[in-house]
Design a binder for these strands. Structure first.
Length: 591
RNA sequence: GGGGUGGUAGCUCAGUUGGUUAGAGCGUCUGCCUGUCACGCAGAAGGUCGCGAGUUCGAGUCUCGUCCAUCCCGCCA
């Protein structure tokens, strides 16, 4: 037996007991005649004392070595108790020492504070060391508990977990896929599943009624702090359910996860915001509602303005929107410039602003405003001294998006100045609903599904499918937490005729393509498909939020870098000619 | 594909206007130390300044290119 106890177990009640512990050397304090070693395992730390004949051997230990010790539990002298350790009342007087593995000096400090500062590429190269840090071990545990809470919840609701294939067929709509060459079928490919969407709908046709899966998904798109090439989705689908049913089901799940993981009681139901209002007030479809700084609309006011830039936009069907960044009149030239650059990157021609200082409006555009316009702005935006007002004049959605982004930047600038606090544990969940079913894709010159082509229209809007598709709202919903899209889903189309019409007449996918790509699905719908709907959400993102981090890399054991590499295993790599030949593949490298 | 930030000792960083031998803290190593728990004290070692060109009498510092990490835009039905 390598150990009798773990390193967080012993107390003064164990006085005099002979015990064996194994673990990693967390730190060594060598006093010459006496050596203290903090021994660490996954449960905690116990101080081991070497002052016998073992002292000489112990001087050769190094941090992070794996050792086993045998010894007698002693109670520490009263003034030597370490109140910071659960085992701080005792220590083990070592009488036996086995060095299982002497460690090289780690390339970076394995403490929470020290490791957080280290460049992430180093942490990823030595991920097995990074994961020894208490914070990372805690993150792994949080992920486990969250995942378990999800499974327990759906199990209790009589859902069953069904596995679906990772190797799917290629469907070039939507996200770029990872292709997998078929050895048996030369020149043909599978695609790694972007999500189990189609299989879960088929499972509804199969009569499963209540399905869920913790599913790995793959998308060959550029990576971000909240996006990895492979990620984990909690995928749910149910028959005979409507939107209200989904909201209640999902709120129940989140309530349980927050309770089980954080012992926090989430208030439900979550507020709901229709898409149009989310855009109007926050300039984004995933608003962070922990702070105000809401957008205001002045399109009407400026229709007749002598300020041509605003007036022409307003009369041409665009929108003029403004945002009062309260208390940000002290922005530096550089900060204003940076905001302008952001606005420009979203297609704005500039970023008009009013700086309110010393009772005066300092702005290059204010000379064009009439007294009535100034009064209206003051009233609606609540302008007082020390404020900074930003404007956007553009087509409605773009104007909203520009100020939506400026709103987030302004919040960060306020946080930087200590004028705003954004607590990560201020859990502001909400549903965003009533998305447009279709959006017009300028580049392609046609309509594209906002969510995916299986989303059912809101029944009372279905009549507009032919006449004015962009007016049709989809039965789609997103669940948003503090500016992050946690997940989304919809009630699906279950009538084959409507689904076919959607593909062919609205999305304008040629009939033969529809048949080859979705034929099996349309056929399945003809055999008594029940009304159904579901939701999918990012487990990685949820765990990141539960852990108080914004990067999902912190809750994935072995994540990839922004260039898609695993720095620890050095993948991807070239493969042998033999492998390529077997797969009937020839590579053509870029110039 | 584009923009921002960063790359100097094992780690985190400083490095002035281009100018002698590139510094600090932590870590490492050696010695001392029987009550520490971020132990302490004394000493030492440790650098292709990401890489490659260029300008210059002289480049960590300026210019160009390139690689890597990260944040963002595009992209992510």
């Amino acid at each position: 037996m390598l150990r009798t106890h773990h390193c967080a177990q012993l107390t003064s009640a164990d006085l005099g007991t002979t015990v064996s512990l194994v673990g990693w050397v967390d730190s060594i304090r060598d006093h010459g005649g006496i050596i203290f070693v903090d021994l660490r395992d996954r449960k905690g730390i116990t101080q081991v004392k070497f002052d016998s004949s073992l002292r000489e051997q112990a001087t050769h230990l190094k941090d992070e070595s794996v050792i086993g010790i045998t010894g007698k539990v002693e109670v520490r002298p009263a003034d030597m108790v370490n109140r910071n350790l659960p085992t701080g009342e005792i220590e083990v007087d070592a009488t036996g020492l086995t060095v299982h593995n002497l460690s090289d000096t780690p390339p970076f400090p394995l403490t929470d504070a020290g490791g957080d500062k280290v460049n992430e590429d180093l942490r990823l190269t030595y991920r097995y060391l990074d994961l020894r840090r208490p914070k990372m071990r805690k993150n792994l545990a949080v992920r486990h508990r969250a995942t378990k809470a999800v499974r327990d919840y759906f199990d209790a609701q009589e859902f069953i977990e069904v596995e679906t294939p990772a190797l799917f067929k290629s469907t070039p709509e939507g996200a770029r896929e990872y292709l997998v060459p078929s050895r048996i079928h030369p020149g043909q490919f599978y695609a790694l599943s972007q999500s189990p969407q189609q299989f879960k709908q088929i499972l509804m046709v199969a009569g499963v009624e209540k399905y869920f899966q913790i599913a790995r998904c793959f998308r060959d798109e550029d990576l971000r702090a909240d996006r990895q090439m492979e990620f984990t989705q909690v995928d749910v689908e149910a028959s005979f359910i409507d939107r209200e049913g989904i909201y209640a089901l999902f709120e129940g799940m989140l309530k349980k996860v927050w309770k089980d993981v954080l012992d926090h009681d989430l208030p439900t139901p979550f507020p709901r915001l229709v898409f149009h209002e989310a855009m109007n007030r926050y300039g984004v479809d995933k608003p962070d509602v922990r702070f105000g700084l809401e957008l205001q609309d002045f399109t009407g006011l400026f229709k007749t303005s002598s300020f041509k830039v605003f007036a022409s936009t307003a009369t041409a069907g665009g929108a003029v929107k403004a945002l009062n960044a309260k208390g940000l009149a002290d922005l530096t030239q550089g900060e204003i410039k940076a905001l302008e650059e952001i606005a420009k990157s979203l297609g704005a021609r500039g970023l008009a602003f009013i700086k309110v200082e010393g009772g005066e409006w300092k702005s290059p555009i204010v000379k064009f405003f009439s007294e009535a316009e100034k009064a209206a702005l003051t009233a609606q935006l609540g302008i007082t001294d020390g404020d900074m007002v930003f404007f956007a004049a553009a087509p409605w959605e773009q104007a909203c998006a520009i100020l939506g982004r400026i709103r987030l930047e302004a919040a960060q600038l306020l946080v930087k100045r200590g004028k705003l606090t954004l607590r990560p544990d201020d859990w502001q969940f909400l549903w965003v609903v009533d998305f447009p079913l279709m959006s017009y894709d300028e580049a392609r010159g046609g309509y594209a599904a906002t969510h995916h082509p299986f989303t059912a229209p809101v029944p009372e809007d279905a009549a507009f499918l032919d006449s004015d598709p962009k007016k049709v709202r989809g039965q789609h919903y997103d669940v948003v937490l503090n500016g992050m899209e946690l997940g989304g889903g919809s009630i699906r189309i279950h009538q084959p005729a409507l689904q076919k019409k959607d593909f062919e007449e609205v999305l304008k996918i040629p009939a033969d393509v529809v048949e080859s790509r979705f034929g099996y699905m349309l056929k399945a719908l003809t055999y008594g498909a029940p009304p159904h709907g579901g939701i999918a959400f990012g487990l990685d993102r949820m765990c990141a939020l539960l852990c108080g981090t914004t990067s999902i890399r912190d809750v994935i054991a072995f994540p990839k870098t922004q260039k898609g590499q695993c720095l620890m295993t050095q993948s991807p790599t070239p493969v042998t000619e033999k492998q390529l030949k077997e797969l009937h593949i020839r590579t053509v490298l870029p110039e």
